[in-house]
Design a protein around this nucleic acid. Structure first.
Lengths: 189, 189
DNA sequence: TCGCTATCTTGTCAATGTCAAGATAGGGTG
DNA sequence: CACCCTATCTTGACATTGACAAGATAGCGA
């Protein structure tokens, strides 16, 4: 419901409100269990208002993914000082920002070639490559080590988020991920 | 279009035909980009016919996931003789049976507590636990090694399927996965 | 004050999932 | 062979949705 005395035809901040409503709906119903009309109702605007800002449903999810990838790249860049913590930061981001990561992990939901998405993904990939290089046993194993580090972090985050790991009921994901990374890459150096 | 002389009210094998149509549609449009009515049209029956066999859309995806998990458990059990090949078999299954794995990796699409799903998942988990135990450096690291093996295989498969790895354009996923597993677990023994 | 553009609202249409009522086909029994 | 019951459909209806178009309004700049 709009505020009293607020003009009906100019929300002022509708784009942000719709994105926040989408994040809330994704928490409640997953990345595909809600509708644009439902978000419009929550925002107190007409069913077609979000289309002005996003074009269509995929456009909205592209905006959500772009925000997510930008925050994700920032997170990995901040963690890059300690190569042992990059994988942990990957897992922490995926879990702490679940609605973002649920969308980010589903490229069919958004326009993956959106420039803000590709540039943020490249920033994140650079951190992964650089930190994995540090953990690699030798230069010819750099690429394989990068793939292993990425697979480990991505796989762990996905299993935790889907509830496949029994530990996700009451465990500490960061501590578990950190121990796993120590076990795997500690043996390689 | 139904065969000539085939009774209109008794397809005879509609359940199988709808599941096959769903797998084909998932290949074409992903796990959420098709409709029950579209599958009914492809099968040449009315829009409500699939509901008799599956109840609703989620029921159909539950049947798809159940088939997938049963085949997956069979695949891992066959690979169990060589613990180094279990992770490779995981990746091979996910890629060779892409429509199944795209659904299986999305528990919000189906009823995960369906008994045929939980029993098949338990069979698969048993193989993972047993083979990872063999690769573990010591008994107190068994659980962590299992989680690492599962994360590695699951993460690699997911990255490959989503096209996130550049290697997925023209690489050999099994060979790449096998090399990665050798690198990671070879150092732990 | 006016004009232009951003930002909405209203309305429409095709498609969908689901549900209910009814039609038909097959199989078993007397 | 006929009848009855159940499995397996078909037909119809309804609410909701995404997308699109036309139009209304609010803000800003000249």
């Amino acid at each position: 419901m709009r505020q009293i005395n607020q003009p009906a035809y100019h929300h002022g901040n509708l784009r942000r409100v719709i994105i926040d409503a989408a994040l809330q709906a994704i928490i409640e119903s997953g990345p595909a269990g809600w509708s644009l009309r439902e978000l419009a109702r929550r925002a107190g605007v007409s069913h077609a208002a979000p289309a002005y800002h996003f074009g269509d449903k995929q456009g909205l999810l592209t905006a959500v993914a772009a925000e997510g990838f930008a925050m994700f790249a920032d997170t990995l860049e901040r963690a890059a000082a300690d190569v042992w913590e990059v994988g942990v930061a990957y897992v922490r981001f995926a879990i702490d920002h679940r609605p973002y990561s649920e969308v980010m992990f589903r490229p069919e939901l958004y326009r993956a070639d959106d420039p803000s998405i590709t540039s943020a993904r490249e920033r994140a990939a650079n951190v992964l490559v650089t930190s994995a290089g540090t953990l690699s046993p030798s230069p010819e194993h750099d690429r394989l080590t990068t793939i292993a580090a990425w697979s480990l972090a991505h796989g762990f985050a996905g299993l935790w988020l889907s509830g496949a790991l029994p530990e996700s009921a009451d465990g500490d994901p960061e501590a578990l991920a950190r121990s796993m990374i120590r076990l795997v890459f500690g043996a390689m150096r």
